[in-house]
């Protein structure tokens, strides 16, 4: 059990806790002033941002031993679907917003 808390301290520093809590409030603050007409593009934009998970996939694939075929395959798929999430998300959002701008 002691081990647990030692490693807990290592994993979650005070700064991390600060960042998490401030980010939660920031997320709420940013969203709550959005007019309902922008809900769909906003949801789509947020969807693209959580595609940041692809960084984790890159780190994982980057450290897999090159003879471990199953792990390579899983890591490769992870990077691929993560990229889909990021790229698809941003492009779709841009397409929606392009229409808003056109007739100004």
């Amino acid at each position: 059990m002691e081990n647990f808390f030692v490693s807990l301290e290592h994993l979650i520093s005070v700064q991390t806790v600060y960042i998490v809590i401030l980010m939660v409030f920031l997320g709420i603050e940013v969203i709550s002033h959005v007019p309902s007409i922008l809900h769909t593009p906003l949801m789509s934009g947020a969807n693209a941002i959580h595609g940041v998970i692809v960084i984790g996939a890159i780190i994982v694939l980057g450290k897999v031993e090159s003879n471990n075929i199953p792990a390579l395959a899983i890591g490769f798929t992870a990077v691929l679907v993560g990229t889909l999430n990021v790229v698809g998300g941003f492009v779709v959002t841009d397409r929606m917003l392009e229409m808003f701008k056109k007739k100004k």
Binding site: T16, L42, M43, I53, I55, I59
Partner: peptide, 28 residues
């Protein structure tokens, strides 16, 4: 889920992005 990976690697980009979407998505 992205924020969990951020914890795992102590990776700030994933942590902030994940938490931001997590809280903003809940409010939305």
């Amino acid at each position: 889920a992205a924020a969990c990976a951020g914890f795992l690697y102590n990776n700030m980009a994933m942590l902030t992005g994940g938490i931001l979407v997590g809280s903003a998505g809940t409010i939305l």
